[in-house]
Structure formats: C-alpha cells, structure tokens
Amino acid sequence: MSIETASTPTIRVQGLEKSFKDLHVLRGVDFEVTRGSIFAMLGSNGAGKTTVIKALSTLLAPDAGTATVNGFDTATQSAQVRESISLTGQFAAVDEVLTGRENLVLVAKLRHLKHPKAIADELLERFDLTEAGGRRVATYSGGMRRRLDIAMSLIGDPPVIFLDEPTTGLDPEARLEVWQTVRTLAAAGTTVLLTTQQLEEAEQLADRIAILHGGRILVEGTLAELKRLLPPTEVQYVEKQPALEDVFLALVGKNGDPTIDGADAEGAHPDGTHPKDLP
C-alpha cells in the first residue's frame, strides 16, 4: 500500500545525476508531479529524458540524488515502486501474432489477476478496440497498436504511468487518438509522466512542462507561466490560414472518409469536381 498522502507529490525528484563514463547525462534534475496530472518532460534527443524515466522505473541506478514514486523510494523500495507504475516505451510492445484480446489476457495472467478475460474485455471497450479485439494485432493501425499497448500497461490499475515519447512514428490521426487516451487516463486519476520532443504535444496535453536540456531542467511550470518568461508580443491582425494538419484531417476525415463539403468516398463532390482539381 502506498505511503503517499494527499499533500505529497506522486513523483518527487531531487538532485538526480547520472553519467556513463565521461558522458554526464543528468546533472542535478529536480521536479515534482502531483496526483492525477500530466507532466511533460520536453527535450531534444540526448537531453536525458529516457534516462530520467529509467531511473524512476528502477531500471537504472542514479549516481546521486533521490526519487520517490507513489510515496516509495526508488533506491530502497524498488519492488513497491514497480508495483505502482507502468512503463510504455517509444515503440508498441505488443505481440502481432496474437489478437488484441489475447495480448491483454496474457498480461493479466502473467500478473496473476483473477478474471483475465473480463479484464481484457473491459479494457478493449475502454480503449475503443472491442470490434478489433478478435483480430490479430498485425492487422492493426499504428494508433490502434499504441492504444492496445497503453491498455496492456494499465492492467492492474497502476496509479502512475510513464510514457516515453508515446506518439513516435504515428500519423496525425493516430497521434490525436493517443492524446485523447492520455487525457482520459489523467481524468480518471492516473498520474502521467510523458517525455516528448514535440512542442505541440506538450502544449496540448501537459498540466505542467519541464524543458530538459544538457541534463538539466532549464525551466518548469504551466504553459501560461512559461509563456510569461518571454516579453509580451505586439498584437497585430493576422489572417489565420489552415495548417497542414487541418487540411489532412479534413481530407481523410476521422475514419478515413473525406469530409470536405460533402465529398464522396472517392473524394469527388456531387458536381463532379475533385479536391485535387481545385485551384
């Protein structure tokens, strides 16, 4: 049982350091994450994001500093930490030979949970995968695989989930699906720590954002707080043009069907014109 109280941060990191020979990856990292919030660690390749995740999930011992997860010390209470968390890596760790339901049942059995089939069915419904549950995962889209991967990581109801660049390699539609899944997790009380290189991802999802660079957190706060670090901008009238993502989603639609001005399944409008024919 967790020793965390309501006033204690779900994740607390103080002075975390890690080096690999002469390479100093983490140089004193400090941050806290409150229960039920989404905390984004934003940084480029090599900034140290994955190293932080590995240290918090007890896969890597830091050289200095302390960290607690769900009230447990990662150094002295590693077993309790592992029972409190789930880790989803940069690429979906699903068995493509099995069906979606079989993947979930397998993990539930490995965790010695009762009623694994019922657990699988509940998660398939929760992640909008019920109709695909009987299909082999090899037939799933990237977004469906990622949702299944996150569903598998939630078996056993861990209070904390680590998402290491959860939308790597996904197309715009799949990325939006994963974003909604992450929001749903936090709304249900799960504490989410995610790493990302995408500015928009952090902006869209996070309650608080930490910018990690060169092994140090440069700044940390809400989006509004971070924006106030820059001088106020001069207000000017600018005609807003649709972004490429707007065009893409309008053309293919949420379920892959064109949606621009009533275009049919081939993209043609009732008058015979086609989007590609437009000036």
Rank of each mutant, 00 (worst) to 15 (best):
A202C: 09
R146K: 10
Q14D: 11
G253R: 01
H24W: 01
T259S: 14
L113G: 11
V247Y: 10
L170N: 01
P279M: 05
E201C: 01
R12P: 01
M152N: 10
G48P: 08
G100C: 12
R101W: 07
V219Y: 11
A92I: 06
V25C: 06
P116T: 03
V137T: 13
G48V: 07
V29Y: 00
G71I: 04
V33Y: 06
K114T: 14
S2F: 09
Q80F: 11
S57C: 05
K21C: 02
A64G: 13
T195C: 12
T233W: 00
D261K: 08
T99R: 01
H274K: 12
L244P: 03
A224Y: 01
G48H: 07
F39L: 05
D264I: 12
L113V: 04
M152Q: 15
E165S: 08
Q241R: 14
R145L: 04
L123P: 08
T222C: 03
K117Y: 10
L170G: 08
T50R: 03
A47I: 03
T139E: 10
G262L: 05
D63M: 06
G89T: 13
T195I: 09
L104V: 03
R175I: 05
K227F: 05
P232S: 14
L229Y: 06
F72S: 05
L185M: 13
G89F: 13
V97M: 07
P116I: 02
G267E: 09
I211E: 00
T68P: 05
E102N: 04
N45P: 03
D30H: 13
V252L: 09
H269I: 02
G221H: 08
I85D: 06
P62A: 12
D246L: 05
D171S: 13
L218M: 05
H269F: 15
S86K: 06
G15M: 07
A151M: 11
F91A: 07
S7Y: 04
E83Y: 02
F91V: 08
A174S: 15
D73C: 06
D246H: 11
T88E: 12
T10R: 12
R136D: 03
A138G: 02
V238W: 03
A55C: 15
A138R: 14
A55I: 15
E32C: 11
V252Q: 11
E239Q: 13
E173A: 14
Q180I: 03
T51Q: 05
L106H: 05
F20A: 00
L199Q: 01
D261S: 08
K227T: 06
G15Q: 14
T58R: 04
E17P: 02
R82G: 01
H115S: 14
L176Y: 04
I209V: 15
L60N: 08
A47L: 00
R82A: 00
L42P: 11
T190V: 15
D63H: 13
K227Q: 15
E200Y: 04
Q14V: 13
A250C: 04
T5L: 11
G48K: 09
G28R: 01
L230E: 08
I119A: 14
D149F: 08
V29M: 10
H115W: 03
R82W: 01
K114N: 10
S57F: 02
D95K: 09
G89D: 01
A186S: 15
L60G: 01
V81Q: 11
P158Q: 02
K109T: 12
L249M: 15
I38Q: 08
G134R: 10
F91E: 13
V192N: 01
P275L: 15
A243E: 14
V105G: 07
G256I: 09
L87A: 07
